[in-house]
Amino acid sequence: MNNITTTYIALGSNKGNKLDSLEEAVLEIYKTIGDVTQVSKVYKTPAWGFEGEDFLNVVIEVKTRFSAEITLKKLLAIELKLGRTRIKDKGYQARTIDLDILFYGEEIITTETLEVPHPKLTERNFVLYPLADLVPNLVHPLLNQDILYLVKSSKDVSPIKAISDRIQPKKAEFRQVNYLTIEGNIGSGKTSLAEMIAEDFNGKLILERFKDNPFLPKFYEDQARFAFPLEMSFLADRHQQLMDDISQLDLFSDFAISDYNPNKSLIFSKVTLQEDEYALYKKIFNIMYSEVPKPDVYVYLYQNIESLLSNIKKRGREYEQNISPEYLKNIHNGYLNFFNSQNKIDVKIIDISDLDFVAHREDYLFLLEKISEINIKASG
């Protein structure tokens, strides 16, 4: 999963209802690329390079997880959706919408389809003025000059006038709670979703430390022999981590979010342990976790077995490649049995079998909405 990058995108329109086209483009960029965190004033300028109606121009700041190349593809798709038509070899043309990447982080990109920073931005007041509204001190990585200097030294003498500040930023919303848990079967994507929500909404991220467990590869080779030491080691490690992280919440974080819950130990051990082993394990669990804070909201990401197996194969952990469909089915049933036995935990089961919230922002926004619909039940 990519980290968030700040990109600046120029929007222009000189055909149809121009202001509406700009607003629609901002909305589409929010829905498909990332949060629109800043929007400049709208500027009116004459057509550039051809005879036509005046343009309305705006620059926006966008936080995205997509690469510059994928961002460009999504921008071109938005242009097409909003009615832009390109006539090959005709040069500059009137358009309902024009979308250009100006900067993408501090990257310098030169390919057949994309050049960043935009090679013409220093020559165009309709780009420089709105950029200066947002980031006057941003330094051009090739010229080593800030935007304010580029505005003052611009040779573009075409008239430019600020006419509106109607277009507003558009950022994802999420109803936070003190402690949120994202759970799911092996390969369901729970860790990726927890990481994304924590990064976007200033959450304290608590991830399961399964990668460091020495018994896990051995368990997948010989479950009968290594099930009990594996579950006991997970039990101790999860307890220590939760006591350290949740009991002492970071004052600089708004909430805690984890990709596991202590009850996962009971769910998995019920599947992997013999009856007498499980009875002993449950006694120890009840003693250790009696004082551990409980999540306010418990989200379970459901994926069908075929999707889980595909995800497991794609992420390529060698010790997971022989996990059987039957084992995944038993784990899922264990979760359902646990949920059905609870009346004090606010659980939201979301089917994500047809979703890809990493590749498609629309799916991610859908999940944020579904999670935010949860009504926290009163404890006690």
Rank of each mutant, 00 (worst) to 15 (best):
F234L: 06
L99W: 00
Q93E: 02
R315C: 10
S21F: 07
E24Q: 15
I312C: 08
N14F: 01
K81R: 15
E291V: 15
T111M: 06
A172K: 03
E291W: 11
D250G: 11
L80C: 12
P136F: 00
I60T: 12
N3I: 11
L207K: 01
Q223K: 08
L99V: 07
K44Y: 08
E373P: 07
G316T: 12
E53D: 12
D356Y: 05
Q145R: 14
L102A: 04
I9C: 08
M232S: 08
D222N: 11
Y149I: 13
V26W: 03
E208V: 08
T45P: 09
Y8K: 04
A194P: 00
Y281K: 02
D245G: 14
W48A: 13
R175M: 14
Y43K: 04
V157T: 14
T111H: 06
F103E: 06
D351L: 03
A47F: 03
Q168R: 15
Q248F: 15
K73N: 15
P229D: 09
L216N: 09
V299H: 04
L56M: 10
M288G: 09
L273G: 01
F252E: 15
E28Q: 11
S353M: 04
L76C: 01
N3K: 14
V297H: 10
F226R: 01
K218P: 04
R84Y: 00
Y289N: 07
L128V: 06
K161I: 14
I312P: 05
T7A: 06
L301P: 04
L11T: 11
